[in-house]
């Protein structure tokens, strides 16, 4: 008892065991991301009114990220952009995960179906990812819908590979053989035996898919495909900032990009720490 009291005071996290520390990291990063989304939704358009009296201001206490050539506060713009990025990333990851689940279950159904899934995975991985997103979003007709579709339709292959490997391994298990001998249908085995085992893996895969989806969305937007210039997306903010680089307005590019990096890192951290909880072997590092 007494030792526990003593250790709590050692360092910031020193007194916590790995379990508590992991939970704390997951909790606080999730909270940060939630705060970004909520505030971006409730901020609305008002703070983004153009104000030519205060254009191109360097970062200050009043405008921590500076202002752009129309006098808009970059902090607010960045916040809105991040919110949009997280929402787009979330939507795209969810669709990709759904595709993974469907294809994963399909591949457990039989040999032909499995080769089809494997073939589809190989096909999607054979074109450079970014080019594929561009191609799909053009095919859809561009715009926000194009970007979301492009990102959503291209992030499932790697997770599907993992799920396929896991499914294959599960199918060699004794209880699945027994189920089969008892005359259970393939669908019954897939949904009752295989899917529940895959849930943690898929959940983790989805969270780790988030940062990829967000970065790809930002990249495609940066290149000029998809979202219209009026949307406060990070890709658009950075693409605009290129025009003002030689004028020395570094803050236009620096802070929005850094914020995006932090958001991506936050998702990575949540994913990694959840991974530790699910598979404690990694925690020994």
């Amino acid at each position: 008892m007494s030792t526990a009291v003593v250790t709590v005071n050692r360092g910031l996290f020193g007194g916590l065991n790995l379990r508590k520390k992991t939970l704390l990291i997951i909790g606080s990063t999730s909270l940060l991301l939630l705060a970004i989304v909520v505030s971006s939704v409730f901020l609305g358009e008002e703070p983004l009114q153009t104000n030519f009296g205060s254009k191109n201001l360097a970062p200050s206490l009043e405008h921590p990220f500076g202002t752009d050539w129309m006098g808009r506060d970059m902090f607010i713009r960045t916040l809105e952009g991040l919110g949009l990025s997280i929402l787009v990333g979330g939507l795209a990851s969810t669709i990709s995960t759904l595709l993974t689940v469907i294809l994963g279950l399909l591949s457990s159904a039989g040999k032909t179906a499995d080769s089809f899934v494997s073939w589809l995975v190989d096909l999607f991985l054979s074109i450079p990812h970014l080019l594929l997103i561009v191609l799909i979003s053009i095919g859809i007709g561009g715009g926000a819908a194009g970007v979301i579709t492009g990102v959503a339709l291209t992030h499932w292959p790697s997770l599907t590979r993992v799920v396929r490997a896991e499914t294959k391994q599960l199918k060699t298990q004794e209880y699945i053989h027994i189920s089969r001998n008892l005359g259970r249908s393939k669908w019954w085995i897939a949904t009752r035996h295989i899917l529940p085992h895959l849930v943690p893996q898929i959940l983790l895969g989805t969270i780790l898919m988030f940062p990829h989806a967000i970065l790809h969305e930002a990249s495609v937007t940066f290149l000029g495909f998809g979202l219209s210039p009026h949307e406060p997306a990070i890709g658009i903010i950075l693409s605009e900032s290129m025009r003002y680089l030689s004028a020395g307005y570094w803050w236009l590019a620096f802070f929005p990009g850094l914020s995006l990096l932090i958001v991506v890192l936050a998702f990575d951290m949540i994913g990694e720490n959840l991974g530790k909880l699910i598979n404690p072997k990694i925690a020994h590092e």
């Binding site: 790995l18 379990r19 992991t22 530790k276 909880l277 699910i278 404690p280 925690a283 020994h284």
Partner: peptide
């Protein structure tokens, strides 16, 4: 020293 599921030491 080992970590079990859920990181219990």
């Amino acid at each position: 020293t080992q970590y079990a599921s859920g990181l219990r030491q």
